[in-house]
Design a protein around this nucleic acid. Structure first.
Lengths: 113, 113
DNA sequence: ATTAATATATCATTAAATGATATATTCTAT
DNA sequence: ATAGAATATATCATTTAATGATATATTAAT
């Protein structure tokens, strides 16, 4: 990060990745946090500070939009098409990162037994 | 990042991930940069500032060690066993991040056609 | 001789993440 | 009833991470 805005680079940080993933279905803030814990089996969690900061960024980048704000206390958000597209691109990027490592580690295994 | 040291958390940033991956075999700084470009088909690159900063952190965390410093101008580094272990753990973490997303996106595909 | 490539290194700046904190509501068990 | 837990949103100040810019030196190629 730093010196380059990840969203402008067309990339998602881990936090943005999981929030966007949670917003494939409409959810409000608290449910986003709970959903992330749920889908990751508590291996990843996002606190309120990180979440609301990231929500704002995702909104201004049009990666998510407000879904329903009739209930002032439970404003829901949902990923936009643009958001889903970036998410899919990001999944692929991460998939490739795994493949890069697998290649190198596999070669090592073959050499060192 | 921020407020928590990623290495202390047992996690690798993208930069640290690729540097450590390059050091499965002994390499010096410049070759690390070139190797990262090579294995990622130029989709990821690490500049000197990021690299030397990260090398220092990886050294103090004993994830890499100096392999050969007889040539002052081409000091080589290599991943330690601890480094390889963390790398493998990190590959698995990233693998899971992809699986988390695939699950959610697959469900969406099934619902929305 | 000049240019490009190789090679290492640091500084100052910006972005990202988050602990701490604050506030209010609703549900649940005593 | 009421105390506590869970639900729910929000901000600030701080720390870590990343990197553009920059500097320097050597070596290989033209």
């Amino acid at each position: 990060m730093a010196r380059t805005d990840s969203l402008e680079m067309g990339e998602l940080t881990d936090t943005a990745y999981y929030i966007l993933l949670s917003l494939v279905e409409a959810r409000h803030g608290y449910l986003i946090m709970k959903n992330i814990e749920s889908i990751t089996n508590n291996r990843f969690s996002v606190g309120p500070a990180s979440m609301y900061t990231t929500i704002k960024k995702l909104l201004s980048a049009n990666l998510i939009r407000i879904y329903d704000d009739s209930d002032q206390k439970k404003k829901t958000y949902i990923a936009t098409e643009k958001g889903i597209e970036l998410l899919e691109k990001e999944v692929q990027r991460r998939r490739e990162m795994v493949i890069h490592a697998e290649k190198v580690l596999k070669q090592r295994g073959e050499i060192e037994g």
